[in-house]
Design a protein around this nucleic acid. Sequence first.
RNA 1: GGAAAGUUAGCUCAGCUGGGAGAGCAUUCGCUUGACGUGUGAAAGGUCGCAGGUUCGAGCCCUGUACUUUCCACCA
Length: 891
Amino acid sequence: MKKELEKTYDPKGLEERLYKKWMDQGCFHAEVNPDKKPFTIVMPPPNITGQLHMGHALDNTLQDILIRWKRMQGYEALWQPGTDHAAIATEVKVTEHLREQGIDKEKIGREEFLKYCWEWRKEYGGRIIRQLHEMGSSADWERERFTMDEGCSDAVQEVFLRLYEKGYIYKGSKIINWCPVCRTTISDAEVEHVDQEGNFWHINYPVAGEEGKFVEIATTRPETLLGDTAVAVNPKDERYTGIVGKLLKLPLTDRVIPVIADEYVDMEFGTGCVKITPAHDPNDFEVGKRHHLEEINILNDDGTMNGQCGKYAGMDRYEARKKMVDDLKELGLLVKVVPCTHAVGTHDRCGTTVEPMIKQQWFVRMDEMAKPAIEAVKSGELTFVPERFDKIYLHWLENIHDWCISRQLWWGHRIPAYYCRKCGKMIVAKEMPDTCPDCGGTEFEQDPDTLDTWFSSALWPFSTLGWPKETPEFKYFYPTDVLVTGYDIIFFWVIRMVFSGIEQTGKCPFRHVLIHGLIRDSQGRKMSKSLGNGIDPLEVIDKYGADALRLTLVTGNAPGNDMRFYWEQVEASRNFANKIWNASRFIMMNLPEEELPEPSAEDLRPADRWILSRVNTIAKEVTDNMERFELGIAVQKIHDFLWEEFCDWYIEIAKLRLVKKNDSEDLRISADAALWTLRTVLTEALKLLHPYMPFITEEIYCTLLPSEKTIMTAEWPKYREDRNFPEDERLIGEYQELVRGIRGIRMEMNVPAGTKTELTIVGKDEAACRDFEILKDTLAGMERMVFATEVRIQSGKEGVGDDAVTVVTSRATAYIPLDELVDREKEIARLNQENAKMDKEIARGEGMLGNPNFLGKAPAAKIAEEREKLAKYKAVKQQIVDQLAGYTKQG
RNA sequence: GGAAAGUUAGCUCAGCUGGGAGAGCAUUCGCUUGACGUGUGAAAGGUCGCAGGUUCGAGCCCUGUACUUUCCACCA
């Protein structure tokens, strides 16, 4: 029984059904297989708090395209999926969630809180995975991992230990970024500089013991005055040479601070005097170190002023600022207030202004590990697509600071450091030690901090494959091939994976990084929750299907570039799916029940060889484009081939032969050849399209070829020399030229569609006549395409009436008798216009070919091409001239 | 303050190593052609930001310039 496609294309039921089928058949699973070459992509693990958004949709579509393609090419293709515990994001979400139920995180304590986190993970961690299923993602879900599962946690501890023993991880008191709302440290990468309106407050600091003498400083954060331990000037600044070494009375306090000289101060900027607050400014911290200044912390962890701040203690930092400015004004020490905009460091997650503070934290030393990561890109071992992201990557690494990895959070990998309760000795180990080697104490307390969530993500390409164990998977699938991600997380993730991978495994974790941009709304704005302008990919899928969404996300999108989302584009994609659906349905309607053997070479007609040749060429081009990660260009070619060549031309040509299959034995053979070609070309094109539109291609393929289980493992089309038919491509090209010309002229002449005429084709020479004779069966049916009742092919003008309009191509002139419709004068004018056009072309060609420089320097192929074109234009012109001469003679 | 990207049809964007400018949507005029009106045929629409340069030849390479966007940055 022949299978059939549903009459209308409805992605909804179809996609769900096919995804289930793939899952049931284990189509996504990859195994260590020494007979095949591996191809690996690790999926950027979505947060367990996350919901699928357009960014995920794009990212996963690109990965799925690559994986499906490589799988078809015969690679053992592993797409390694999983989810991220997303330390701070989850902790914030769970905390909120608990608060809504009236539960206070602090009250229930760490252990209890973590239970809620795991519950959350159980409840919501799978949600985004299910949503990825809807996209058609062919990841190996059997291998799904989680950054906090046993294996990944083991990898984290192992790396921590190794780096600690190597001296690359250390605990130290340094100035760090503190978020007073989240109450944790954050890394440099998490600080976003946002321009804000603010003021420069100019304040006079009285010189001690010299009545009426002041030093004027300017600051954007007056409240930090309470932490000042010096004022600095540039040693070369002659304005201030006399004052260096003197003491100043720090306003609002009873402290005195020295004036010091330091190169760091820019003489040109402000007053040339800088207040130094070592505990709350990274630069001042460095200055303080150089001059052995006291570091006075003035802030509590929640951003309020601490006990050091006298009357301001307990106030919020901004409240204190206001009060202090008022007080300074009252004291007459406020010189002026100058409005200005300046870049304020904010926490990228919550937007809170970050406070630099000195705290004891854990850091990763970056200097040594950055080197091989830089080298990896410089040597070409690791490449970015597009290349320009090299610079961003290198610039960051070349200016990298040590990475603060400890977080004052509960949800995450706890730092594997233990402190002896008796003597305080710190021991770094995977498990809690039994006895203290120093004091013999047996009670230990683990460091309360957890690790930056990116610490575990950095290990993702190998921790998911079983590392640190030498598993077969690790040996086979690592290093991975391509990493696909947005440019927004190069710093957070890509760089950290590279140096971690090289340090731990000795190998760069991937060969290529394919960078994509952001999906913006139709006005070019970032999609965001606060704007409410986000488009839910699931809604798109619901309305138009995952295939349409996927196609929309890759067409016209170049690597690294942002793109705007338009519903119209999705609609166009769905229309394409519909087109393919119906074309396939048409082909299947005509296919016989019985076997359809490959026709012998002589039974194939020119159009058959043409379309076979075309799909062959397209396969090669598409493969080339995909190898260069030009997915948008590749899919455009498949799209255009299927729609404009296969549907618009070949199917139409084939129809003529199908309807006549019972007329004669010869026509039956012709019809069979067409059917076989239709099926063959469709099959090849479906394979090319499958990575982009997996569902519709699977459904059609399996219906068309009932013995095939899936298109997923069908062999990717390869270029075949025996399917290259340049002669037929040329011939059909001439045919198309002729048909287009006839349609055009009929339109121009306003010929009613119902009016059918004879068509006489006069070949330019014998060879041309022969060629058009070869196309006889195609031409004979041309009435469907060019409204001809009868087609004659001949070498002279005999029998051609005077009232015919003409279509001139390089090798033939077609005559269409239109009797009363033709205005002789207009026809002559039209031909003259054509003639002038040819003259222009000929002049261009002759100009080029007459230029000795061109002949001397241009490549031979280009010269030959131009010669050929020139000859063609000359031939057309000749025929136009002949035609005109005929009219003149008659007229 | 550094760096990158963009500037191409009315709109949104492609354009691979330099060799006669493309798509989708929109527009105009046709088509109950038996797969598809989610279709089909024809057409209109561009000084490729501006100014120089290199080249036989530049949307593409170089220099400068204008505007837009983004990233980085410890000038208080």
